[in-house]
């Protein structure tokens, strides 16, 4: 029992970071699954993070903190979508990166809202049960989305936009919904992140977190909602695990090598429903061959 509680004590924060990264990865995934690689989750997280932090400072209850962060994320995501949906996929990736840079400048120069260079202390540690509850609800929502007409439409849209359009899918509508969901989840993730770190500054929502989001999503796989969750867990835990085996100098290199290996050998990510189906189909086909022979 002691061993277990020790284990929990040492890994508690890793688990919490993995859960918040899952939220960020899911926010990135929903847009990627509608055909767009975008870093704009960073922006939604920044809005959710600063809105959440300000409300915590004012002593507002957690349900309202998360509600306002979600609302702020949604609002900014719809604004971003209104501009970005005019762009082609690869230009959107670049534009969203530019938006991340702009966000940092804006947060630096709005000290009244963000604390500017000094950042913002958050006088409330995020309770673990709240974080768990938020993640479970989000995952349930993604499960429902996967099996909804939105899920059907976005799978077709991602593979072949022309075919989707001829099927009657309003591409703009689906992409707008995807951005909206990304904004809500990104905003919630930002608020959770603020309370997890208990201190946020313009540098919190910058290139580092942008890389984490994309890497976790691509690593886990962007063809099923479970992929980003697995990706976030692996991506968060990998450095910790490496610590135990490797001298400090090699750790970063080893992280990079492991990620490279996964991307070379599993380019569609760790969770790939298509690969599962192909494997399932293979023995059946072999059976047919035997009968014919």
């Amino acid at each position: 029992m002691d061993y277990l509680s020790d284990l929990w004590a040492t890994n508690r924060s890793t688990v919490a970071f993995a859960m918040v990264n899952s939220l960020f990865a899911l926010s990135t995934y929903v847009v990627l699954a509608a055909g767009f690689l975008s870093f704009s989750t960073v922006v939604f997280a920044a809005v959710g993070g600063f809105v959440g932090a300000q409300l915590v400072v004012k002593g507002v209850g957690l349900p309202f903190v998360f509600g306002a962060a979600a609302g702020g994320g949604l609002l900014i995501s719809l604004l971003v979508a209104a501009v970005f949906l005019r762009l082609n996929s690869h230009w959107m990736a670049l534009a969203s990166l530019a938006l991340v840079l702009i966000t940092r400048v804006v947060t630096l120069n709005a000290p009244a809202l963000t604390g500017g260079v000094n950042g913002l202390g958050v006088p409330l540690a995020l309770p673990m049960d709240w974080l768990t509850g938020v993640l479970v609800l989000t995952v349930l929502a993604f499960y429902a989305l996967h099996h909804s007409w939105f899920g059907v439409a976005s799978r077709v849209l991602r593979e072949d936009p022309s075919v989707a359009a001829c099927m009657g899918v309003d591409l703009r509508q689906i992409q707008l919904i995807a951005f909206g969901i990304s904004g809500i989840v990104g905003g919630i993730g930002g608020a959770a992140y603020a309370m997890l770190l208990q201190f946020i500054s313009p540098d919190t929502f910058f290139l580092g977190i942008a890389f984490t989001m994309i890497a976790a999503t691509v690593l886990g796989g962007s063809y099923h909602w479970f992929g980003p969750v697995v990706g976030a867990v692996v991506y968060t835990a990998l450095p910790i695990v490496m610590q135990a085996f490797l001298p400090h100098l090699l750790q970063e290199v080893a992280n990079g090598v492991v990620l490279l290996l996964i991307m070379i050998f599993l380019p569609r990510g760790l969770i790939d429903p298509r690969a599962v189906r192909l494997r399932r189909a293979a023995p059946a086909a072999a059976g047919v061959m035997k009968i014919r022979a």
Partner: peptide, 19 residues
């Protein structure tokens, strides 16, 4: 032929029923 990669035959037709 432009079917959607990763979907079963039935799922393709369900997607075709979007309207």
């Amino acid at each position: 032929v432009r079917l959607i990669s990763g979907l079963t035959a039935l799922e393709q037709v369900v997607a075709g029923s979007f309207l």
